[in-house]
């Protein structure tokens, strides 16, 4: 069933349209940056944007920062919201279930397909932006320094520039290309996993309603609420439990030394959201009357 769900995902025009748009946003930004060479003042704008002018190999990280807050979650919410409700409104859900496909099997396959979608989207965004970055900004050089960006929470002092061919981490020390690749992969993995909590919420809502749009909008409302509350000091008591609380912690992969406390908390939090909402989706779906 998982193979079939993946085949359906890949044969769907919408999958490629949304990934195409996700890849297009960083490309557009890159073109503007490259033609005007006006970078956002250090410390403002998306992290890394001010640094990419001097190191194209950093551009995948900047691209992730661009799509992470809005575009990527919207794509995830659309695919997740469509997963069960879309089958219901097309009428194909009943035909799948009387094939028969077990209800639990179907849900697991849908979650796996959703994960595959996020992996694919993140990989393609990083891949295309790497090409765009190198094409427009060059590979980067030793003098690229990101010192003005916030230092690591542990306060390690930024040190000087590194050997040629390397790029500088957020804390100012230089990274070899191998280290950079590893850290970029780590950040991509973390961004992917960060989306799954929201995906599980969309999947759950998708089993509640027969309207794919309704499920997607519901999950989107959750996202917006969480984003608002994260910035609100008055909501400090619940902030550590909000699904988007640790989304930006992927930046920690570029600190030197690596400081992954928030990343770990973020992973645990996402795992909790996936577990809770997948269990809720399962409980609801496996006892539901299918009247679509």
């Amino acid at each position: 069933m998982i193979v079939i769900e993946l085949a359906k995902l890949l044969r769907r025009g919408r999958t490629w349209t949304s990934i195409g748009l996700l890849c297009a946003l960083p490309a557009v930004v890159a073109v503007f940056l490259a033609t005007t060479e006006i970078s956002p003042p250090p410390g403002q704008g998306a992290a890394f944007l001010s640094a990419v002018l001097r190191a194209g190999t950093l551009y995948p990280a900047a691209a992730l920062a661009l799509v992470l807050p809005v575009f990527l979650p919207i794509a995830v919410v659309l695919v997740g919201g469509d997963s069960v409700a879309g089958e219901a409104s097309a009428g194909t859900l009943r035909y799948l279930l009387i094939r028969p496909v077990g209800r639990t099997t179907l849900l697991v396959a849908k979650l796996v397909a959703l994960t595959a979608f996020v992996v694919l989207a993140v990989a393609l965004v990083a891949g295309t932006s790497l090409l765009v970055g190198i094409a427009l900004f060059g590979v980067g050089d030793a003098t690229t320094v990101l010192q003005p960006l916030p230092p690591a929470p542990d306060g390690s002092a930024p040190s000087g520039a590194g050997p040629p061919g390397s790029v500088t981490s957020l804390s100012g020390t230089t990274l070899t290309p191998e280290q950079l690749t590893l850290r970029l992969l780590g950040a991509m993995g973390y961004v992917t996993l960060s989306m799954l909590g929201l995906g599980a919420i969309a999947l759950f809502l998708s089993t509640v309603t027969d309207s794919a749009l309704g499920a997607a909008l519901g999950a989107l409302a959750t996202l917006v609420t969480s984003q608002v509350l994260v910035t609100l000091d008055a909501a400090g008591a619940i902030r550590p439990y909000l699904p988007t609380r640790y989304w930006l912690s992927w930046v920690d992969f570029f600190r030197e030394p690596l400081f992954l406390y928030d990343v770990q908390r973020g992973l645990v939090l996402q795992a909790c959201y996936v577990l809770v909402f997948f269990a809720a989706a399962w409980a609801n779906f496996s006892t539901k009357d299918i009247t679509s």
Partner: peptide, 12 residues
């Protein structure tokens, strides 16, 4: 079985 009309993925 055929339940309440046929259904298929419209784009395939």
């Amino acid at each position: 079985a055929l339940v309440e009309g046929p259904a298929a993925y419209p784009h395939l």
